[in-house]
Simulated assay, not measured.
Amino acid sequence: MDRHRFRPGPFAEVTRVPAGDRWDLVFARDLRHPPEKVWAALTEPDQLAQWAPFLTSRDLGTPGDATLSTVDGDQRFDAPTTVRRAERPTLLEYTWGDDLLRWELTRTDAGTRLTLRHRMGKPDLAPMMAAGWHLCLDVAGHLLDGDPVGPIRGAEARDFGWERLRDAYAERLDS
């Protein structure tokens, strides 16, 4: 796909739930690929580099320490990471700095139901995170379809509708 023609797809199902003194953004969408293929996109460094908001120092498919480097233009910000659980191809859980990401993959007739639980410190971050994950997972969908558009990260996301997505997710999460 021509990157300049890329537009965000349909909204994901989202909720925001308390998790002790923190909050979980629960972000769910369906992908038309089997869990094994989605798992590879979530764990393999070469695939993550094509859609995720970060680069990884290693394959995330096994427990242990790693570094996730958030990318924004020419800048990189390293965050310590620990893969806590890696149950191929159904569950991946790791820290990202102070946050916790839990990816749940469920086989469906049409492919995979992907549910991300992103634990964060402040509930008002949820619409921003939802908008970012929306764009990232749209890009991942194109990658899985064999039609890569390249990663959309950091400030560049504003050129692809991030602010509109943030506002729409804020409405959905407040209702």
Rank of each mutant, 00 (worst) to 15 (best):
E87S: 08
A130V: 01
L137G: 09
H142T: 07
P45M: 06
A79E: 13
A110S: 15
L92M: 09
P151A: 15
R107N: 03
P151F: 05
V149I: 08
T81A: 08
I152C: 00
F27K: 06
T62D: 04
H33K: 07
H4M: 15
P127C: 00
A49S: 15
G154H: 04
Y94H: 12
Y169N: 01
D124N: 12
A41I: 00
P123L: 03
R5N: 12
T108K: 05
L173P: 07
E93A: 09
A126I: 02
T67S: 11
Q47P: 01
D21E: 15
L173K: 07
R102Q: 13
A12D: 03
G121D: 13
R164A: 10
K37C: 12
D72Y: 07
P10R: 03
A19C: 08
F54P: 10
A66S: 05
R32I: 14
L60I: 03
L100D: 02
D30M: 05
S57I: 09
R88D: 15
A140V: 02
F11G: 06
R119G: 12
T70V: 15
R3K: 10
R164L: 01
G121N: 11
P35Q: 06
P151M: 10
R3A: 04
D78F: 03
R76P: 06
H118A: 10
F77W: 11
A41M: 01
G111C: 05
L105A: 05
G141C: 09
R5C: 06
Q50K: 13
R166K: 13
L42P: 10
R7A: 13
L137C: 08
R85N: 04
F77K: 06
R5W: 12
R85E: 14
T81C: 15
T108H: 10
A140K: 11
A110F: 10
